Computed example of a mutant assay.
Amino acid sequence: MAGKRVGPDGEDGVEQVLDELYATPPSDFVPRREQAALAARSDGRAADARRIRAARRPTQAAWAANLLLRARPQESRRFLELGQALREAYRTLDADGVKELSEQRRSIVSALSRQAAELAREAGHRLSDATRQDVDSTLRAVLADQDAADRWAAGRLESALTPPADFPARSAGTPAGGRTERARAEAPRPSSSRKKDELAERRRRRQEQLDAARRAAEEAARLLREMRAARADAVSALQRARERHDLAEQRRSTAEEELRRAGEELERADRERREAEEGLRAAGDAVERAERTARDTEKEAARLAGPAED
């Protein structure tokens, strides 16, 4: 409706309007945007109206990712924190550690992607397989790239994000400590005591890296368990809703059948009533005719019974 206030005034107000717009299904985005812009302009907020009208409609995948961030704030925050931990772990881990975290990463992305698809379905929009792949791509990008994580965290994606070829890793030939093999070869040979110190330092750094990797893996596993538990709860809730729906449908069918029967009984009763009324009228007419006949007969009998003529 023209002139309807969509959000509060001021900077916070327009930010709230934009947040809500990017969580709006793409099919409804443009009408909502124009309604909000018109409301802002009607309130004398021309700058806000321009900002709102400049918002671009998101793709289906970008909308689903925005919806996930808005509807699952705790899981999304932990997902962003996990991305930071994973990026750091990937910079320091060996091949075996990278493989383990990659498996955790795929499981978590898959779990969150399913949640996004379920949220979209609850909003009345089923995601296609291609759109689901774009959602997966966006979530992988959020884990692997800080810029992608920042863009998703803003909640206003307009299109799906593309992850880098792989997680950020140290340069080839550069060990976790940061020195290249060539630099180590060119360095002067340290004394025995210095060798021991460097060995202890490398072991300490290696232990720190392993500890960080384990913490990242544990956090990934915990987040995955929480997501699976949330999904199980959602499945249970859906099953209960379906059972309630089936029971209500059964009751509705029973009520419709009873209503149909009651309607038929009402029609029969109405028909019998009309027939009885017609019978009553016919009987009344017959009584009136009989009464007239009786009166006429009495008159005739009285006439005949009168004094005889001489």
Rank of each mutant, 00 (worst) to 15 (best):
Ala65Phe: 06
Thr59Asn: 07
Trp63Lys: 04
Gly83Asp: 01
Ala62Lys: 02
Arg72Leu: 05
Pro73Phe: 03
Ala89His: 02
Leu80Glu: 12
Trp63Asp: 03
Glu75Gln: 12
Arg78Ala: 08
Gln60Ala: 15
Asn66Phe: 09
Leu80Lys: 03
Thr59His: 00
Leu68Tyr: 13
Arg77Met: 11
Arg78Tyr: 11
Asn66Pro: 10
Asn66Leu: 09
Ser76Cys: 13
Phe79Leu: 07
Leu67Gly: 06
Leu86Arg: 08
Pro73Arg: 12
Gln84Phe: 13
Arg87Ala: 11
Asn66Asp: 08
Ala85Pro: 02
Tyr90Ala: 07
Trp63Gln: 06
Leu68Ala: 04
Leu67Glu: 00
Arg87Thr: 05
Leu69Ala: 15
Ala64Glu: 00
Gly83Asn: 05
Ala65Lys: 04
Phe79Thr: 03
Glu81Asn: 14
Glu88Lys: 14
Ala85Cys: 13
Thr59Tyr: 12
Gly83Lys: 02
Ala85Lys: 12
Arg70His: 15
Phe79Glu: 00
Glu75Ser: 13
Arg78His: 10
Gln84Leu: 14
Leu69Asn: 05
Gln74Ser: 14
Gln74Trp: 11
Leu86Gln: 04
Ala64Met: 12
Arg77Phe: 07
Gln84Pro: 06
Pro73Trp: 05
Leu68Ser: 03
Arg87Tyr: 11
Arg77His: 13
Gln84Thr: 15
Ala65Ile: 01
Glu75Tyr: 04
Tyr90Arg: 01
Leu68Phe: 05
Leu69Ser: 14
Arg72Ala: 10
Leu67His: 03
Ala61Gln: 10
Gln84Ile: 14
Ala64Phe: 00
Arg77Cys: 11
Pro73Ala: 07
Ala62Thr: 08
Gly83Cys: 13
Gln74Val: 06
Leu86His: 03
Arg77Asp: 11
Leu82Ala: 10
Ala89Glu: 02
Arg78Ser: 12
Arg87Phe: 06
Ala64Ile: 02
Ala61Leu: 05
Ala71Glu: 13
Glu81Pro: 01
Phe79Arg: 07
Leu80Gln: 10
Gly83Thr: 09
